Simulated assay, not measured.
Amino acid sequence: MKKDLNDYIYELEKLINIANQNKDKYTFQDPAYEIMDEIEELSNSFDFVEPILLLIERSPDIDFGGPGPFGTFLEKFYRNGYEEMLIKSLQRGSKKYTIFLLERLCNDETNPNRKEYSSLLNSLKN
């Protein structure tokens, strides 16, 4: 049976819940890398960017890694729409991990929106 977007998100949510219960980030991170590899192989992998950001928003207490399976996946779409979706996520409600992802955007000195991202980052830290 072929999996769809909701199937993958459900699998990731289950891993997050297990990691929260066990207080062990690796029960999420290790298997999540495998799931994210599967998603990357899909022709519609960009469609997962926003649902993953929403999943992060719903799960602020988990250590997703640095950058971890989600960050590694999301950053593959850098300069292809990921940044705009990250900003929208931050506007809905910043989380420790989404702020971390924004910091990574600010580190790119060639990014034409770096000043805007840095300004947003400073406002979130205050």
Rank of each mutant, 00 (worst) to 15 (best):
N6E: 15
N17I: 09
N111A: 07
A32G: 12
M85Q: 12
T98V: 05
K125G: 14
L105F: 05
E38T: 06
T27D: 10
L124I: 03
P69K: 05
N111W: 05
V49S: 09
P112E: 08
L121N: 07
L42Q: 06
K14Q: 13
T27N: 11
N20D: 09
L102F: 12
N20H: 11
L105S: 02
E34K: 08
I56L: 07
K115I: 06
G66L: 06
Y97W: 01
V49M: 03
L86D: 06
K2V: 11
L102K: 05
L101S: 07
S45A: 15
E109Q: 15
F70A: 09
N17Y: 07
K96M: 09
E34L: 12
F48T: 01
F28W: 02
R58Y: 07
S94M: 10
D108W: 14
I18D: 08
E40D: 08
D108S: 11
L86A: 09
S123E: 13
D24Q: 03
L5E: 11
V49Y: 07
E41A: 15
N20Q: 14
T98H: 07
T110A: 15
L120V: 03
K88I: 05
E75Y: 13
G65W: 01
Y78T: 04
S123P: 05
L12S: 12
G65A: 08
S43H: 13
L5C: 14
S123Q: 15
I56P: 02
I56E: 03
T27C: 15
Y117W: 05
G68Y: 00
E84S: 10
A32D: 08
P51Q: 13
L105D: 02
D30W: 09
D47R: 12
F73H: 04
N111H: 15
D4I: 08
Y78I: 02
K125V: 14
F77Q: 04
K88P: 06
S89P: 04
E34P: 10
T98P: 02
L42V: 12
Y8L: 06
Y10N: 14
N22V: 04
D61Y: 15
G66F: 13
S89Y: 06
Y82Q: 07
F64E: 00
I35G: 03
E13Y: 02
P51K: 12
K95I: 01
E13V: 00
E75D: 09
L15H: 05
N126P: 00
T27A: 06
K2C: 10
F48P: 00
K115D: 13
Y78L: 15
L102S: 06
T27P: 04
P31C: 00
R114H: 09
N107G: 12
A32E: 00
D30P: 02
K76A: 12
K96W: 15
G66W: 08
K88R: 14
E103Q: 14
F73P: 00
N113V: 01
R114V: 07
Y33K: 01
V49P: 05
P67T: 01
D47N: 10
R104G: 14
D4C: 13
R114M: 12
K95D: 01
S118E: 15
